[in-house]
């Protein structure tokens, strides 16, 4: 026993320089990851005052978060926009991947992949600015509608109509992310051995049957990964709303993360905001675990 300890000590001494090397990294994580996390949880039990000391108020902040209607609304908005985006983006990404796999002309194939993937690389400032302009009264959508309806057409300010707001967020979110999902699906599709298709063809399977019985089953594990990844993100969409929201549509699209930012950073309601953030964090972890279980996710890598 004592000898083991001595051994360990000697080993640790041998790795002295390595520990030293790692020290800045570990300190960084303590300061920039663990400290904010703990600070946030502590603050969530406090009433933080601009002047003077904060005082502990127990579960008061959590009570506010669970009873206040603006948090309810933000939660509903997060679910509708986040969930809607996930479903639409998932289906669209799948379509892109399957279509891509059927394009045999090399130039067309890489053009299609590029044009679907580029939006994923762009910042939300770019995508938001782009769609706000395209949906504006002088933008492209109104331009097409005018073409269809003639000179008597009165332009619609799409971004200022509460009725369109969620649809627009879901659509633009999917527009940005479909190529990303497609790239993930493609990563498993390209691993398919070409001779499988060949064999199926010789057995008389039509191409659509090959897609159904060879391509799709190969992507299923990736679909599960993608589902888990996205579920973790559903409650955490900030950038899009930060860029695209305006006063007329805020009731429909302001989500939890934006509300937390608004309360915590702009209005100094630190206690309430950190309580809400903690709730979102716990909810995210729980939902992710549940989805993992549901999809038997962990079995994929065994």
């Amino acid at each position: 026993m004592n000898k083991d300890k001595k051994n360990l000590w000697r080993k640790m001494k041998r790795f002295r320089s390595i520990y030293l090397l790692l020290l800045p990294v570990l300190i960084y994580f303590v300061v920039f990851s663990y400290y904010p996390l703990i600070l946030g949880i502590v603050k969530s039990f406090q009433e933080v005052k601009l002047l003077g000391n904060s005082e502990f108020v127990g579960l008061e902040n959590y009570k506010t978060v669970f009873t206040n209607s603006q948090y309810h609304q933000a939660f509903i908005n997060s679910l509708i926009v986040g969930g809607g985006t996930f479903v639409f983006q998932f289906v669209w990404g799948l379509v892109v991947a399957l279509v891509l796999n059927e394009i045999r002309v090399k130039i067309l194939r890489s053009a299609f992949q590029t044009v679907t993937f580029i939006p994923y690389l762009l910042s939300w400032s770019v995508v938001g600015g782009l769609w706000i302009t395209i949906l504006s009264p002088t933008g492209m959508i109104n331009g097409f509608l005018r073409l269809l309806e003639g000179a008597a057409y009165t332009p619609v300010a799409f971004m200022a109509e509460a009725g369109f707001a969620r649809t627009i967020m879901i659509f633009t979110g999917s527009w940005k992310g479909a190529g990303y999902f497609a790239a993930l699906f493609m990563a498993s599709i390209v691993s398919i051995d070409g001779s499988l298709y060949e064999a199926a063809r010789i057995d008389g399977a039509s191409r659509i049957q090959q897609i159904r019985y060879i391509t799709v089953p190969v992507i299923v594990p990736t679909m599960k990964v993608v589902a888990v990844l996205s579920v973790m993100g559903i409650l955490r969409n900030f950038d899009q709303i930060f860029v695209m929201m305006n006063a007329t549509i805020s009731d429909k699209v302001k989500n939890l993360l934006y509300l937390i930012y608004e309360q915590g950073i702009l209005k100094f309601n630190v206690g309430e905001a950190t309580a809400a953030a903690t709730v979102v964090l716990v909810a995210t972890l729980l939902i992710t675990q549940a989805v993992r279980k549901l999809l038997h996710y962990d079995a994929i890598y065994e």
């Binding site: 994580f29 300061v31 920039f32 990851s33 663990y34 400290y35 904010p36 996390l37 600070l39 946030g40 603050k43 973790m232 955490r236 900030f238 993360l257 937390i260 930012y261 915590g264 950073i265 630190v270 905001a273 950190t274 953030a277 979102v280 964090l281 995210t284 972890l285």
Partner: peptide, 16 residues
């Protein structure tokens, strides 16, 4: 540290 997304600690990151 990867389990806790940075965007959920934004308020305390700001204070830090």
């Amino acid at each position: 540290t990867m389990m806790v997304p940075g965007d959920l600690t934004l308020i305390s990151v700001y204070q830090l």
